[in-house]
């Protein structure tokens, strides 16, 4: 298998290495995977356009394996699944995760279930990648972030990289994986830059990363929320242990629990809806498994439980910001100190 040739776990580069945008890191993972393995192909609405998926599909070296599709997300998801069951490794691309909802029958009833339904006798090497998050007054149908909802469905892995390095390594890992993966890229991360090795590499699916070290408060934040939380930590030099789960599912609960056992406090910052979501899941799991260590009730900072507005003042009120995250952190840090043994 060609994939064994690069199956290594790189440590995050320290700096001084090549800088790449998040968008180009995604593009490079796809391009290198397609060069490595002729079974890899990309399919989706405007996938073959140079501006497709916000520029992440431009100038791929195998254009014959990049297929644009009609607006038929439901059937196209089934087509990608059928191709995955017939020996290929499809990457189904979407401009926005709101469009995945058109394909819920295929994603939930078919893609997610196909392995469990047959006692895992079949492999489903299928990646569905999609952009998440707000744009610019895009309103309720073009601004959602739905990783929590998809993570609830057994049979789907859910990945939410926050840095260019993670984006490339985790996308390569997703393409290499023999089970379905949903890969969510936040639109506001696309222009961020960071050190990215030129060679192809994978990162482990299900392993969190520490973005900031501290002892007073554990903050769990995926995707753009992780970058905003990092900014909040650095702005005020807060004593925060910031964990980017990197993959929503499987979740690296061990890293989160070890941190909470040290800090006694938990804040989950999740740019998604609150009800029965990822933040609720982390709070529930920590409460179940590290209740004794908690000195304060776990807190969530999420979107309000309503659809997104459009006008500027409404958007600015609706969405959490680094400033609001900083406030929530300071409030928790000001509480009773953790009892240390």
């Amino acid at each position: 298998m060609p994939w064994s040739r690069f199956d290594c776990d790189y440590a995050a580069p320290a700096g001084g290495e090549r800088e790449l945008t998040y968008c180009h890191a995604v593009r490079e993972a796809i391009d290198q995977a397609m060069q490595l393995d002729s079974r890899v192909f990309a399919i989706g609405l405007d996938a073959d356009d140079k501006f497709g998926v916000f520029g992440s599909m431009s100038d791929l070296s195998h254009p014959e394996r990049v297929l644009g599709t009609p607006i038929s997300e439901n059937a196209m998801t089934g087509v990608a699944l059928g191709a995955a069951l017939s020996g290929l490794r499809p990457i189904h691309v979407h401009l926005r995760n709101d469009f995945l909802l058109v394909a819920m029958d295929q994603i939930v009833n078919y893609v997610a279930k196909w392995q469990d339904m047959f006692d895992r006798q079949v492999q489903v090497p299928l990646v569905i990648r999609s952009v998440i998050g707000r744009g610019w007054g895009c309103g309720a149908q073009h601004s959602q972030t739905l990783h929590g909802m998809f993570a609830q469905i057994p049979g789907l892995k859910v990945i939410t990289p926050s840095t260019p390095y993670d984006a490339k390594g985790l996308l390569a890992a997703a393409i290499k994986n023999d089970s379905p993966v949903l890969f969510f890229e936040h639109r506001w991360l696309y222009k961020n830059t960071g050190a990215v090795p030129e060679e192809i590499y994978t990162l482990p699916i299900g392993k969190a990363a520490h973005l900031h070290r501290g002892n007073g408060l554990t903050v769990v934040a995926p995707s753009l929320a992780a970058i905003h939380a990092l900014k909040a930590c650095e702005n005020d030099d807060l004593d925060v242990d910031l964990i980017d789960p990197r993959t929503i599912k499987p979740l690296d609960l061990d890293t989160i629990l070890a941190s909470v056992r040290r800090t006694g406090r938990l804040l989950v910052v999740d740019y998604d809806f609150p009800f029965a979501g990822f933040a609720a899941e982390v709070c529930a799991a920590v409460t179940e498994q590290a209740f004794d260590a908690l000195v304060a009730p776990p807190q969530r900072l999420t979107f309000p439980d309503r659809g997104m507005p459009a006008a500027g003042p409404l958007e600015r009120s609706y969405y959490p910001t680094p400033e609001r995250i900083g406030e929530a952190m300071r409030e928790l840090l000001a509480g009773q100190p953790a009892v240390t043994v």
Binding site: A75, V79, G82, A83, L85, S86, Q106
Partner: peptide, 26 residues
């Protein structure tokens, strides 16, 4: 490669198999 109980959806899977053949899977 599997059968499904939701009426209609598996129509797309046969098309995916055809696409795989077109892209060189066999």
């Amino acid at each position: 490669p599997g059968s499904s109980a939701i009426v209609g959806g598996s129509i797309a899977l046969g098309v995916g198999a055809g696409l795989a053949a077109e892209l060189g899977a066999g």
